[in-house]
């Protein structure tokens, strides 16, 4: 009888002691990261006062920012107005009007091009489905992220706002991809 009681007591105290040890180990592990980081040199992104077009912000390559509409090697628009991005868009924020290329005025390399290409940034959730859907790699995510506006109507971006600069074609008006008007 006595021995049985003693056995139970020992088992209980063992459990209590072990839980205290585990807690201490957990705290030590967590704090070790804290203390190690305390000894590292300080790194601060000096946004918005840093250098460069992003004013100090460092963005990962895969960051999904404001969209860019790309051009092909001949300077023609890659977009052929297939509407697949608009179909893929879960927030229904892409609006396209297609038109036909003519011999005199060639905008894209295929039969048709996007006469109007609007993205409503009031609704865009930057999911990247449009980029995945695009069969011609015409739409990509750029790194533009300063999209806030005090006027919601400014948030509908037109094709001219998103089209990349026409490099190598002097005299053309360059639309800067990172600066959203």
């Amino acid at each position: 009888m006595t021995r049985g009681w003693c056995k139970e007591y020992t088992a209980a105290s063992y459990t209590v002691v072990m839980s205290i040890v585990r807690n201490i180990a957990g705290i030590t592990k967590g704090m070790s990261i804290t203390f190690r980081e305390m000894l590292q040199p300080t790194e601060v992104e000096n946004y918005p006062d840093g250098p460069g077009p992003t004013r100090g912000a460092v963005l990962q390559e895969r960051f999904r920012g404001a969209h860019e509409l790309q051009r092909d090697e001949n300077g023609l628009e890659k977009c052929v107005a297939c509407f697949l991005c608009a179909a893929a868009c879960p927030s229904n924020c892409i609006y396209i009007e297609a038109a036909e290329n003519t011999a005199e005025q060639r905008i894209s390399s295929a039969e048709r091009y996007a006469k109007v290409y609007n993205i409503d940034y009031n609704r865009c959730i930057f999911c990247g489905y449009c980029v995945e859907a695009c069969p011609t790699d015409a739409i990509t995510h750029g790194h533009g992220f300063e999209l806030a506006s005090l006027n919601a109507t400014n948030l509908v971006m037109r094709k001219e706002d998103m089209l990349v600069a026409n490099v190598g074609m002097p005299g053309q008006l360059a639309a800067h991809s990172d600066s959203l008007k």
Partner: peptide
């Protein structure tokens, strides 16, 4: 209808 839109639009 040519090149104006797509059926799902």
């Amino acid at each position: 209808y040519r090149y104006k839109t797509r059926p799902w639009e």
